[in-house]
């Protein structure tokens, strides 16, 4: 009962998981933002495999486009590097 789409789903979501971990550990906020948008792309693929096309349309536009732009605007108003522990 090997189902190809479930394997692809597991791979895609685990890649998203790894990228979200890397985004959390990154101190350069712009790099962290890029990593988080890569994670969103993987999750969007996951939603597509889970047969939720309306979520894919909203998720891609919001997570890769609007959210990234809003956070870039916010970073431009503060500092680029996270300092201190």
């Amino acid at each position: 009962m090997i189902e190809l789409h479930l394997i692809i789903l597991a791979i895609v979501v685990s890649f998203g998981f790894v990228f979200s971990y890397l985004a959390m550990k990154e101190h350069d906020l712009l790099k962290a933002l890029a990593l988080s948008s890569v994670q969103s792309t993987f999750f969007a693929l996951g939603f597509y495999i889970l047969a939720a096309p309306d979520i894919v349309l909203a998720y891609l536009a919001i997570a890769v486009g609007a959210y990234t732009a809003l956070v870039i605007l916010a970073i431009s108003k503060t500092e680029r590097y996270e300092v201190g522990e």
Partner: peptide, 21 residues
């Protein structure tokens, strides 16, 4: 079809963002 106002609107917001950038 799947999608609707919110999805279309957020895609359109991305278009305006591209112009912005």
């Amino acid at each position: 079809t799947p999608g609707g106002g919110f999805q279309g609107g957020s895609a359109m917001a991305v278009a305006s963002l591209l112009l912005f950038a």
